[in-house]
Amino acid sequence: MSLTLEQVHRVAHLARIEISDGEAQSTLGQLNEIFSLIEEMQAVDTRGVEPMAHAQDVAQRLRADRVSEAGTIDQRAAFQEVAPETEAGLYLVPRVIE
């Protein structure tokens, strides 16, 4: 399979990446090369092989259900120093409403 220019623009939009038409064109070529590589790999018979979910074949370690960080107003203030705008402890963002 190969991608269309329209699909490249759509994926870029979904990922909120701004690309010019020229960039879209060159990205299209690169992505299609990746797709042809995938096509080659798909020729391999993988029947009976369980898909991997992670490159490492180990299980997730779990954490005990314990509050390990009591949040503080000071810590919040430190986090919010880099925020463009805050008020009453809230991060302010351009209005979103459904």
Binding site: E85, E87, A88, G89, L90, Y91, L92, V93, P94, R95, V96, I97
Partner: peptide, 13 residues
């Protein structure tokens, strides 16, 4: 929310 005016913005908690 009560007592807070976000100047037409949205507050995130």
């Amino acid at each position: 929310c009560a007592g807070a005016n976000f100047h037409g913005r949205t507050g995130i908690d």
